[in-house]
Design a protein around this nucleic acid. Structure first.
Lengths: 140, 140
DNA sequence: TGAAATTCGGACCCACGTATCCGATTTCAC
DNA sequence: GTGAAATCGGATACGTGGGTCCGAATTTCA
């Protein structure tokens, strides 16, 4: 459903949403907490810094922090740099252009389900996502 | 959403559903019709022969044909040999086990959407999928 | 001012899905 | 029967995402 990299990004930000936004959290701390190879995490978070979702600070006590309140941060914005097949997810047959006018064979049947998926990522915020589980149950 | 291979399988079977089920259609004919590399198509359809969805005949005038009426052939059965992450699609964070009892962080928020996707593939038949478009508009 | 901590960015490696090719095997037509 | 046509099945190449590593740049603390 999501690429491995998007999954990592989502898990990392879920963790960051629980931390104090004033302080930045080191990459190794995040990696250990959510079960991501530490050497890979920097590569994952970097695009999110560029897109303005995260704020990163260098030097001692540096690290990453959310640049946006979790209640205003939609999931779509988190996964966009990685799964930017957002245009591809809407057509089951993977056609670049597939609309009501230029429909593929399965367009009509798939339409409502595809729209529902898109709506989920577009309208669900990081803050809404935290389930009733007390302690976050992330991957593994 | 679907792997490339699943996509190919779906397109090929959509084409076969339009053909006479009594006759078998050559792999090269199918490949040309739906825009799949001919040399790859055999490898794609082979697992579906083994799983009983297709019937293949060798020799002159051989080829592939549906072994199941399109109205009874659910999409899930077509993509299962390729995307058997059916167990992975239900959990956004990719946890192998993720149920109401052992929920991941996003379980509650994702649940209804994930179930809807699963239901689509489980209950939609090949026959239902053909849209109002007269001539099948497949890939490309 | 220097040393330590930390991100940044690129070079590199690996696995797997995708794709190609070719010989072996089977079947039909004559 | 014999030969042509076709699938089958495995060996092999390719490309991209996933993952590691290391040096450069930057900031803080002593």
């Amino acid at each position: 459903m999501l690429s491995q990299t998007s999954e990592y990004a989502l898990r990392a930000l879920l963790f960051l949403a629980e931390q104090d936004r004033k302080k930045s959290t080191g990459a190794d701390v995040i990696a250990a907490a959510v079960g991501i190879p530490a050497s890979y995490l920097a590569k994952v978070l970097q695009p999110l810094v560029r897109s303005g979702v995260l704020h990163s600070s260098r030097g001692r006590n540096g690290g990453f922090a959310l640049a946006v309140p979790p209640s205003q941060l939609m999931l779509e914005r988190i996964i966009k740099p990685f799964d930017d097949n957002s245009g591809r997810r809407h057509c089951l047959l993977g056609r670049p252009t597939c609309s009501d006018r230029t429909a593929c064979a399965v367009h009509l049947a798939w339409k409502s389900t595809g729209e529902r998926i898109a709506r989920f990522f577009r309208t669900t915020s990081l803050a809404q996502v935290r389930g009733p589980v007390g302690r976050l149950t992330l991957g593994v």
